[in-house]
């Protein structure tokens, strides 16, 4: 058998899952399993207990509120990809999710699993960052909210306690006329991105940028919100010169080299992709405003 030996629990309620977390040391939570199962098969992780959330029906939902989507942690990436509501009102999520692994992994993989695994190159992590998502965490004392930008405690480490469980995320909905773009560079379709950029833009009637959000994934150890770039965009006339100028801010990102590419290459990619994402998002914003 590939995985190490463990005790297996498959609770049907969140309360039961949290009880199990409290009473089992060295426990791992199994969501969609598209990252944890490979690590178990290679025995990189050796938990004493595996707590499988797949039978908790209450954690799988997409609810549209007036200005946010609330998505349950165990909602499959597939269900998000094929949600007509999300496609209509939060299209950047769809553009990003089509780059998450492959159809077979999206059929199992969950949004909560992606967020907790917190790979800085993961598309949904970058999306939660650009949208100013709020992570819903449930523990023995009840539920609390964590703003997504405070969610990474470090490289692939969420800022939650051992007895807490991510139960959902809220993603704010932008105006009907916002422009969006998610662009990544990967060596093959479905691979983790070498670098990715998510951009959201609103333009006013004069073609000036009224609101902007930009996030860069895969370059630093945590997903980055490019607040300096956003400040450089707002109030300015949308155009290639502006996008070129603000994209240069990516040259200052702290990045490390790895087996695939040197650090400078990722920074360079982040700049190139930022320019392209801003241009596409701005074009879409102007088109939607005109129609």
């Amino acid at each position: 058998m590939k995985p190490p030996a463990f005790h297996y629990f498959d609770p049907t309620t969140v309360a039961e899952a949290i009880g199990l977390l409290q009473h089992n040391e060295n426990a791992k939570i199994l969501a969609g399993g598209q990252s944890l199962m490979p690590m178990l098969n290679m025995r990189f992780v050796q938990p004493d207990a595996l707590i499988d959330l797949n039978r908790i029906k209450d954690l799988s939902f997409i609810r549209r509120g007036t200005d946010t989507f609330e998505i349950g942690a165990m909602t499959r990436q597939r269900d998000i990809e094929f949600s007509p509501e999300i496609r209509a009102d939060c299209p950047i999520v769809i553009e990003a999710i089509e780059n998450v692994g492959h159809r077979q992994t999206r059929n199992r993989g969950t949004i909560g699993g992606s967020l907790c695994h917190l790979d800085p190159a993961a598309e949904l992590v970058t999306i939660a960052g650009v949208l100013d998502g709020t992570v819903e965490v449930t523990g023995p004392e009840g539920r609390r909210d964590i703003h997504f930008l405070a969610f990474p405690a470090g490289y692939m480490t969420p800022a939650i306690e051992m007895n807490e469980l991510v139960t959902g995320i809220r993603l704010p909905i932008w105006s009907k006329t916002h422009g969006y773009a998610f662009i990544e560079c990967a060596r093959r379709h479905g691979d983790f991105a070498l670098a990715s950029v998510a951009a959201l833009i609103e333009v006013d009637a004069e073609g000036r940028i009224a609101r902007a959000a930009v996030a860069v994934g895969g370059v630093a150890s945590v997903p980055l919100r490019m607040s300096e770039m956003e400040a450089g965009l707002v109030g300015q006339a949308a155009g290639d010169d502006l996008f070129k100028k603000v994209s240069r801010i990516c040259e200052t990102i702290e990045s490390a080299a790895d087996a695939h590419v040197p650090a400078g290459y990722r920074r360079h990619l982040a700049g190139v992709l930022s320019f392209r994402a801003l241009r596409l998002a701005s074009m879409r914003a102007q088109k939607r405003r005109a129609s």
Binding site: K2, M37, H102, T105, N107, R108
Partner: peptide, 24 residues
């Protein structure tokens, strides 16, 4: 590969494709 990369073990689970090496 037995870690979800090659796709050789793809089966349908309740009608949708999954990697059988990544499920218990």
């Amino acid at each position: 590969c037995e870690h979800g990369v090659c796709g050789a073990c793809t089966v349908l689970f309740d009608g949708v494709s999954v990697r059988a090496c990544l499920m218990l």
